[in-house]
Amino acid sequence: MREYFKFNSKPSLALIALALTIASCSKSESSDEPDPVVTSEIKYAISNVGGAYPSQTTYIQGLENLELTDLDNSNAAELASFSSQWAYGDAVYLTAFGAPATMNKYTFDAEGKAVSAGKLIVPGANTFSSIAFISDTEGYASVGGGLARLIKFDPSSLQITGEIDLTSITKPSASSIYYLGMKARDGKLFMGVNYFDDNFKPFDSAYVAVIDLAEAKVEKLLADGRTANVFLAGSSVNGFALDGNGDLYIQAQGASSKPSGILRIEKGQTDFDPNYFFDLKEATGKDCSGLYLFDNGLAFTTQIQDPSDAYEINGPNYRFRRINLSQQTDLGELSAALPNIYGSSTSIMRKFGEDSILFVVSSSSENAIYSYGIDDETVAKKVTMSSGTCTGLDELN
Rank of each mutant, 00 (worst) to 15 (best):
R321I: 14
S347T: 03
S12E: 08
F133S: 01
T21N: 15
A45V: 09
L221S: 03
P259V: 09
T270R: 09
G392A: 06
Y292E: 08
F203W: 09
L166I: 05
L147N: 13
F231E: 06
K220D: 00
S347D: 04
D247F: 15
F196Y: 11
A117Q: 05
V230M: 11
D198Q: 14
L396Y: 02
G124T: 00
K217W: 04
T69I: 12
I160R: 11
G353I: 00
D375W: 05
S365K: 13
I374W: 07
F5A: 12
N324C: 12
G145P: 09
A114W: 10
L18C: 12
G118K: 04
Y179G: 06
V218P: 00
L325P: 00
K281C: 04
D271I: 07
Y88L: 01
P54E: 04
Y292A: 11
I160P: 02
E395W: 01
F352N: 05
V218W: 06
S175Y: 14
D306P: 02
S289N: 02
G187C: 08
A52T: 07
K381A: 00
T329V: 13
P202E: 02
S335G: 15
I348H: 01
D330L: 14
E395M: 06
Y88Q: 02
E111V: 00
E33N: 12
Q327H: 10
S387T: 10
A174E: 09
T270H: 02
I265G: 09
L189W: 10
